[in-house]
């Protein structure tokens, strides 16, 4: 049994791991099998993380955080958590491999997942023109026509980024004004390659083998139009990844995991949550890192108040994963 298991591998999870490891809690970090490193693995330059005056590439920043956690004794497992049993003194963490790990405390830092349009052909054409990541896929649309759906900062950032490659970038937005910041809006309005399609909703994505067009419906009068297209980028926000804790942890009205005040404490003893999964407002690498620190300190304090015999069972023992139960 472990003292603490950390679920996730973004800035929140890695910061929690650094603090927990330095407190001699020998944390086990379940980092995900293919998405380890979190959202910043999908971006290029990060220019607002303190300590890097020249900026740093997202993947490099995450590798550094990981190395820092490992240096102090955090142990990483590249697998996905498939089930959590969080009630009671001993928590159980089930992995994709079938292994089950036990711990006295769990820090939940799974971040958020992109929202989908919910259209019939979205899944089928995903990777064939439908994308959630301009920095990942934009370069394949040189001299092509693409659309970005959304109206926030991330939609405008994607649209502006895509003008490096594409000839035309439509920005499809349901309303007549954008949620994005003033600065982003001005930059986008000034860009001759970006064409705004106001008061429009994407109702269809067309294409057999790959995207060839989209069908739009006016949110004002229901008029239908179509546009030829090579790529469709979806940037309509993200939802906190809470599916593993439904029915166990209380959620806030915004859908994030509810925590007490400025702490990371959830409604269950010994279960702490950090990062974008608890944060409906700020969603930055540095705020996620800060909340990961809070979670590790809260967990450390919780563990220090547990009965000595329980701690003895967790401390110093090598990890002993149990075989999958039938």
């Amino acid at each position: 049994m472990r003292q603490v298991i950390i679920v996730g591998s973004g800035p929140a999870a890695y910061t929690a791991a650094i603090y927990a490891a330095r407190a001699d809690l020998a944390p086990l970090v379940i980092a995900s099998s293919v998405e380890f490193g979190g959202e910043l693995m999908k971006t290029t330059e990060v220019e607002n993380f303190p300590g890097f005056p020249e900026g740093i590439m997202g993947p490099e920043l995450m590798t550094k955080m990981q190395e820092q956690a490992e240096r102090f004794g955090a142990e990483l497992v590249y697998d996905d958590v498939t089930k959590l049993e969080l009630e009671g003194e001993i928590k159980r963490v089930h992995l994709g491999s079938g292994e089950v790990h036990e711990a006295l405390a769990v820090i939940y830092a799974t971040g958020s997942a992109y929202r989908k349009l919910g259209l019939a052909d979205e899944e089928r054409l995903s990777g064939y023109g439908v994308s959630w990541c301009a920095t990942c896929d934009g370069a394949f649309f040189r001299q092509k026509k693409v659309a970005v759906v959304g109206g926030g900062d991330s939609a405008l950032e994607e649209a502006t980024f895509l003008t490096r490659f594409a000839d035309t970038v439509y920005l499809v937005h349901r309303r007549e004004e954008l949620r994005a910041s003033k600065a982003m809006q001005e930059r986008a309005f000034a860009d001759p390659k970006i064409e705004f399609l106001w008061n429009q909703e994407v109702a269809h994505i067309y294409g057999d083998e790959k995207v060839t067009g989209m069908g739009l419906v006016s949110t004002v009068d229901g008029t239908e139009t179509t546009k030829d297209l090579d790529g469709l980028f979806v940037a309509i926000g993200a939802d906190p990844r809470t599916h593993l804790v439904h029915g166990q942890l209380e959620l806030a009205p915004e859908g994030t995991v509810a925590v007490r005040g400025r702490s990371s404490m959830t409604n269950l003893e010994g279960v702490f949550a950090a990062g974008d999964v608890v944060d409906p407002s700020y969603k930055q690498a540095i705020t996620a890192a800060g909340s990961g620190c809070v979670a590790a300190l809260d967990a450390e304090r919780y563990l220090s108040e547990l009965p000595a015999e329980l701690l003895a069972r967790a401390a110093g023992t090598a990890p002993q994963p149990q075989p999958a139960s039938a």
Binding site: E35, G37, M41, P59
Partner: peptide
């Protein structure tokens, strides 16, 4: 794959 693609690096050892 490409050098700048994070998920490519993740899947490569698999």
């Amino acid at each position: 794959w490409a050098e700048w693609c994070g998920p490519c690096k993740a899947v490569s050892p698999i």
